[in-house]
Simulated scan of single mutants.
Amino acid sequence: MTKQAIGMIDSGVGGLTVMKEAMKLIPNESFYYLGDTARCPYGPRPLEEVKEFTWQMAEFLMEKNIKMLVIACNTATAAALEFLQENLPIPVVGVIQSGSQAAAGTTQAKRIGILGTEGTVKSDVYPRSIHKEDETIEVFSLACPPFVPLVENNTYDGEEAKKVVADTLLPLKDKQLDTVVLGCTHYPILRPLIQEALGRNVQLVDAGAETVKTVKQLLGELNIAANPLGGKPEWKFFTTGAAQPFKELAEQWLEEQDLNVQHIELGEE
């Protein structure tokens, strides 16, 4: 058992959806969260650039003596997971494999939709991962560029957001899907709107939430889980953008008060 924190990185605030699941499922663990809000969104960026940004975030948290790193961003996972696993001395977990396994285990019709950023969809990583589970499953991927700005700008509520989501998802309406993966950690914030647009018969899989289950299992297997009698866990939040808006969103989503949020600089922003 160890008191070291788990590091969590994301392109912005979307990974807080993963953080919320982690706080519920593994409440004894300390977390250091870093959101690169100054350079968000990652989706339209070249994967090599995303890989470099992800490495910068990982290096920052490694200096904090973390025991595990969670890449709570699908685009960053697609771009940098294998590189970080090969170059860091600690376990590194991404969000794609867990989401793929859950989706493959959920679908009955063997027709799965993937909602992701442009970078995630272009990487083709979800279809490859799902086909490792079951090569007979048909996968339909859709890039949803308007979704991340809705969340980052805190404009994800109301009729305009509802229309943006419904219009974006129109290409999937005739695909007879029974399972859809929320392949970006920002998207669970839009879950009610996505569910309404796709219909109640479609099962939504939250890749980030599934990843937390993997993290819990790995902590046990490696015997590095926090001692439940070790006292109150420590949560620290870092952002490359403005600290106050990040703090307000984090406290709203996590339903916590007085969170420790600090602005940091990474690379050339």
Rank of each mutant, 00 (worst) to 15 (best):
G94N: 04
G94H: 07
G94S: 09
V95Q: 04
S98M: 07
G99H: 03
G99S: 05
G99R: 10
S100W: 08
G105D: 10
G105R: 11
T106D: 03
Q108F: 13
Q108Y: 13
A109G: 07
A109E: 13
K110M: 02
K110D: 03
R111Y: 10
I112E: 09
I112H: 00
G113A: 10
G113M: 01
G113K: 08
I114F: 05
E118N: 08
E118V: 11
G119T: 05
T120R: 04
K122R: 15
S123N: 02
Y126Q: 08
P127C: 08
P127N: 11
R128T: 12
I130E: 05
H131P: 03
H131T: 02
H131S: 05
H131I: 01
E133N: 14
D134C: 02
E138L: 09
V139D: 04
F140E: 04
S141Q: 13
S141M: 00
A143D: 10
P146K: 05
V148S: 03
P149H: 09
N153S: 11
D157V: 14
G158L: 04
E159S: 12
A161I: 10
A161L: 03
K162S: 14
A166Q: 12
D167H: 11
T168A: 15
L169G: 08
P171D: 04
P171Y: 10
L172F: 05
L172D: 09
K173W: 01
K173N: 09
D174H: 08
K175V: 01
D178M: 01
D178I: 02
V180N: 05
V180F: 12
